[in-house]
Write a protein that binds this DNA or RNA. Sequence first.
DNA 1: GCCAACGTTGGC
DNA 2: GCCAACGTTGGC
Length: 158
Amino acid sequence: MAYWLVKSEPDAFSWDQQVANKVEPWTGVRNYQARRNMMDMRLGDRAFFYHSNIGKEIVGVVEIVREAYPDPTSGESASPESASAGSASAKSATKGGGWICVDVRAVGPMPRPVTLAAIKADPALADLALVRQSRLSVVPVSDAHWAHLCRMGGWTAG
DNA sequence: GCCAACGTTGGC
DNA sequence: GCCAACGTTGGC
């Protein structure tokens, strides 16, 4: 399984809302590199939920519960019917240059949120994509980095 | 509120 | 196809 990190401004969509909604479509990604990363997400993959701007810390863990499909908030998205077909329709969406989203489910909160400052202060995390490409909202996390960040946050489950 | 990084756009 | 201008993001 692969690991990821997704960012959200808590003003727009916060961890608390993610927990309240349980499953939430991760929409609004309008960057090709981020889109490519989302296309690579598979069922069961996990991602850190990061608060940008306010907080600047990893606040929880989510799981991918639906692979890429056309983003309903995108102007040129396909119909809901074709969207329910799953990743096959995502391919046609990308063919048309449309944007995509995935569904994520809240797994649990970080016992101790991992701040950006703590990440930057740790040499082991110097090449984390979050640090290197601060503007990218969906980034991959290596197995080693995932384990390291889990340790920092006191995350013991899975 | 400012600035750096980076992506996109448009003129040539 | 290059590059300057501009817009957006995100950290400080």
